[in-house]
Design a protein around this nucleic acid. Sequence first.
DNA 1: ACCTACTCGTACATCGACGTCCACATTAGC
DNA 2: GCTAATGTGGACGTCGATGTACGAGTAGGT
Lengths: 192, 192
Amino acid sequence: MTRPLRADARRNVEAIIGAATRLLATDPDASINDIAAAAGVGRVTLYGHFENRAALLDVVTERAIAQTESALAEIDLEGDPRDALGRVLEASWHLTHRFGALVVAAEHALPPDALRRAHVGPAARVIGLLERGRDSGAFRSDQPVTWQVSTIQAILHAASAAVHRGEITADEAPTLVRDTALGALAASTPRR
Amino acid sequence: MTRPLRADARRNVEAIIGAATRLLATDPDASINDIAAAAGVGRVTLYGHFENRAALLDVVTERAIAQTESALAEIDLEGDPRDALGRVLEASWHLTHRFGALVVAAEHALPPDALRRAHVGPAARVIGLLERGRDSGAFRSDQPVTWQVSTIQAILHAASAAVHRGEITADEAPTLVRDTALGALAASTPRR
DNA sequence: ACCTACTCGTACATCGACGTCCACATTAGC
DNA sequence: GCTAATGTGGACGTCGATGTACGAGTAGGT
């Protein structure tokens, strides 16, 4: 029943989603005003396409999740768990850096169940991989898997923040993330 | 020139600072209202003691920094760098968990230079220790020290968040933090 | 016991962000 | 080129948080 949007309307919707993603990735408290302005669109126009700030956030996170899913789905999880995790980390780094604080914005405004969905998907992949690596002795198994997942996420966000602070460059970030996370997960090394 | 505060006034000030610390540690956006209520004090009374939200934040973070400094100052930094860092991590964990999101609140409301001071102090200790460990081959030296500091902080905050989410208990957190951070910093292990 | 310092509650002004309404301009699509 | 669909800016009402003002209690110190 809903007729297809007119061309310019579609363009604006895209611009708004894009701008929202970009802004919220760095400032989770960006106002609707800022977003509309960044999209080159009147605030009222934004409200024409999205009921709420919440509705907008919903679409934006939906997109982000979809992109994340599809990016991660392409990754080969077979082979040496360390190498596979390295690949996942590299991809995750790019996603984290792109979406950054969007998570924070979502946490503030979205119902908890929507967040579960967002987290469970990507996490499941990592968990499976971690468990395989633990069984094969590649990763340490003296810590809860959920904690190890949290560690990985923490490192990813730390890298994103460090880049924004200018402490490290976006180029070196993937390697740092990879090395650090793999080190944190490595089966414990006998000293000496 | 300022006469000493009356006893009840002093008590209230302490209650306010305490409540503010407790609330802001979990919700950096806690309102003045919430804080006053949690302190068992009228909102107006709070304003009697603190000009601003900023002024309150200032005192609270000042306290937090002081406590942090004195807690860390007691730690023996000599001996095996790994062991020493372990001690620092354990203490830092307690501090991080106590103060948690207070950092976020401070970042939002305080002038940047005040933040520098807060960060530089504790960081300097860790940096010194890291550098010693790098020289002695205990820690990997293929990453910027600042990044390693960021990693440690990230792990600390991750642990605090994980405890709040109920994923891990406050009891197991120190060990997890210690093991994970030391793993992340370990001189790279030759595979196999 | 008394004065003073402090507290309390309520009411009020301000501010910024959100969301809505309206009248008018513009553009897409046929 | 005409018409319906969209876009635009401005004005307006609401809401929650901040900060201030006042009058009346209440607890501390001497």
